[in-house]
Write a protein that binds this DNA or RNA. Structure first.
Length: 117
DNA sequence: CAGGTGACCTTAA
DNA sequence: GTTAAGGCCACCT
């Protein structure tokens, strides 16, 4: 039986992002995939914009599929994201991180158990 | 309803 | 290794 009403796509995205561990990064597209929303990477960026600040979502750990920060260089949000990543020990060069070193490898079992839906 | 936009992605050169 | 073009989809005028 269905226990709860359908979770909004945004709520699923927030949940996945909240599971990215400190010191790791993940791409918009893969967040969308794990949230059950394949092909909707752009919705992830919208969800991050809409997230209430008080939920302290680790939005800075979400980057694009090439390992780059998606804000334009030298803009305030770009600089903020780069500093947040470095504060966790992540090496950032020219706005880019090495995915082979820092990409999150999600554990599916843990993920499923964490899902409230 | 049509057209524009974006914290994207994949492919091809 | 890079960049550019086309594709994509939800959302907003």
């Amino acid at each position: 039986m269905q226990v709860s009403n359908k979770p909004s796509p945004m709520a699923k995205i927030w949940h996945i992002v909240s599971m990215i561990p400190e010191g790791k990064v993940y791409s918009y597209g893969k967040v969308a995939d794990l949230a059950g929303l394949p092909g909707r990477a752009r919705l992830v960026s919208k969800a991050l914009r809409a997230a209430p600040p008080e939920m302290a979502l680790p939005w800075h750990r979400v980057i694009n599929s090439q390992g780059k920060i998606s804000f334009a260089e030298h803009t305030p949000p770009f600089i903020e994201q780069m500093q947040s990543l470095r504060a966790e020990g992540i090496i950032v060069n020219r706005g880019r991180v090495k995915l082979s070193d820092y990409e999150w490898q999600p554990d599916i079992a843990t993920l499923v158990l964490s899902m409230p839906y």
